[in-house]
């Protein structure tokens, strides 16, 4: 019996879909059987980020409306045998699915998979309600911006009201150099406001843009720092104790040379 985890944020553009794709792929790389559900009906992206867009024949709406069997709509990942995607419909809207449908769907899927990751749309309307309906756990993604943190706080309140307590926080796109200069909110500030457990911190990484465009999750790139952070989050989800990555080692080639030449401690 697996668990259903919803990845949500309230605010758009903070990296829910990227996080879902990377954590899902990371869990599959650890040998888990994982299914990703895109609930952003009408604005689907997860299939693109996973590089599976051209394989879509049936989608979430087809399943809930009984146009096809669940097995027919699940798209097997190109890299891992244990990873599947249930894409959202693009030509419908959020009202095409009800919270009740999602509950049933999640129940069926968790029988077969170790992890059911639900990628939630931005906002707190029908799409959000659908996404959290079948979830047992929640991961909140936020960026170190006041607006994102404000929305995350609102989401945490809504999750509590919907009997989904104990969400975990993922801080995305943090820039240690800016935090150090005091130009960006630091991790402690955010945890102080949100008062929930931290499950991972993902540094800003240009490679994410490249990997998203290519449809290959960064988690598989051993050189990507964001990828490393996502690998750690995946391990923590399986129950392993992994320390937070050291955010301080970021330095350019110039600095590295300076240090090697002894100009800088």
């Amino acid at each position: 019996m697996g668990e259903v985890v919803v990845i949500t944020s309230g605010k758009g553009g903070v990296g829910k879909t990227t996080t879902t794709a990377n954590i899902g792929t990371g869990l599959a790389a650890l040998g888990k059987r994982v299914v990703l559900i895109d609930t952003d009906i009408g604005l689907r992206n997860l299939d693109v980020v996973m590089g599976l867009e051209n394989r879509i024949v049936y989608d979430l709406v087809d399943v809930t409306q009984g146009h096809c069997r669940l097995k027919q709509a699940l798209i097997k990942d190109k890299r891992f045998d244990g990873l599947f995607l249930l894409p959202a419909a693009q030509t419908k809207d959020k009202t095409a699915v009800t919270a009740e449908d999602m509950k049933k769907l999640c129940c069926t899927l968790k029988e077969e998979f170790d992890f059911v990751l639900v990628d939630c749309p931005a906002g707190i309307e029908q799409g959000f309600k659908n996404a959290i309906a079948g979830a047992e756990k929640a991961l909140i993604v936020t960026t170190p911006e006041v607006s994102a943190v404000r929305d995350a706080d609102r989401i945490i309140g809504l999750l509590e009201a919907n009997n989904l307590p104990g969400p975990k926080l993922i801080i995305n796109r943090i820039r240690p150099d800016m935090v150090k200069r005091g130009d960006m909110m630091n991790i402690e500030d955010m945890i102080d406001i949100l008062a929930i457990d931290l499950i991972g911190v993902v540094p800003e990484d240009e490679y994410i843009v490249v990997s998203t465009n290519k449809g290959e999750p960064a988690v598989l790139d051993m050189d990507s720092r964001a990828g490393q952070a996502y690998r750690n989050i995946a391990k923590r989800l399986t129950g392993a104790e992994v320390p937070l990555i050291n955010l301080d080692y970021e330095e350019g080639i110039v600095n590295k040379l300076k240090r090697l030449l002894g100009f800088k401690g």
Partner: peptide, 15 residues
Amino acid sequence: PTQLRIANFITRAPD
């Protein structure tokens, strides 16, 4: 195309 279907045949763009 992302995907091309004619009658009951389906093809997709190469990866």
